[in-house]
Design a protein around this nucleic acid. Structure first.
Lengths: 129, 129
DNA sequence: AGCTGTCAACGAAGGATTTCGTACATTCTC
DNA sequence: GAGAATGTACGAAATCCTTCGTTGACAGCT
């Protein structure tokens, strides 16, 4: 049971997680429908993926109904943080600043976003004083 | 020739790129030596990886000498930015702010780093005024 | 020339990811 | 109840990543 790879969700797994985060607990068909809007994907493929993901512990399955209900095991916040962290370690050697600098210089953030980041900085520094 | 996957370097590919970025153009053996400090890896494995990476266009090969010299095709800055960007699109739906917030809250940044980020923010906002 | 060490090239193998065909069970509808 | 629709489960195939054994070429040395 519980397989192990890199620990990171793969591309398709991430797409599926995003559906579950957005739609909440769903049946295979519901996930498949939502996913079809962005990607051509067959029913059994989604089913198989969800089975594997359940096996890996990425999703939880409620099989009390005939159509099993799947839901993400970890919040979007948790997984996203884990991935950001992972990228941090693998590429930026743990320097959050480097990652932030890249992220900010690549995408043009809106003024409100910049203000939000400033607020976070204040918050972090405030906690230390 | 020129294969295509996700476009992202894999884990081992990234490790190899980091060696090339750090050491500069190197032979297979030199890469293998440097890599051995952090990971158990055989000579032919590194050779094969470099051949594949050259095929993909991740590295460039100079085969004028008997021992071919490999070097990273793109700078660390470029690749890192691309990866941060990719994560942004795949997980944070393009919101740099979200990524920054996660990055900053996961790792505890040093005060100097926070100051550096502030400087960047000033720079970005300054350019608009 | 023969021996030794280093090199590139190739192919194969094992594991992971993704896709889908098929089989079989259950539920719904006529 | 028969047949269609919908569901799970299983297994196989295609591709990619990673690893390594083997082969043949080449260079240096005696």
């Amino acid at each position: 049971m519980a397989r192990r790879g890199t620990g990171r969700p793969t591309d398709l797994e991430l797409e599926i997680l995003k559906v579950l985060w957005g739609e909440g607990p769903s049946t295979v068909r519901a996930v498949m429908k939502a996913l079809s809007k962005r990607r051509r994907v067959g029913y059994t493929t989604v089913l198989k993926m969800l089975q594997i993901m359940a096996d890996k512990g990425l999703v939880l399955r409620d099989d009390r109904q005939r159509a099993h209900i799947y839901r993400a095991r970890h919040s979007r916040r948790t997984v996203a943080g884990r991935l950001a962290n992972d990228l941090l370690d693998r590429v930026f050697d743990g320097s959050a600043t480097q990652l932030v600098l890249h992220a900010l210089s690549q995408k043009k953030a809106k003024p409100e976003e910049l203000a939000e980041i400033r607020r976070l900085l204040d918050e972090i520094e405030g906690g230390k004083r």
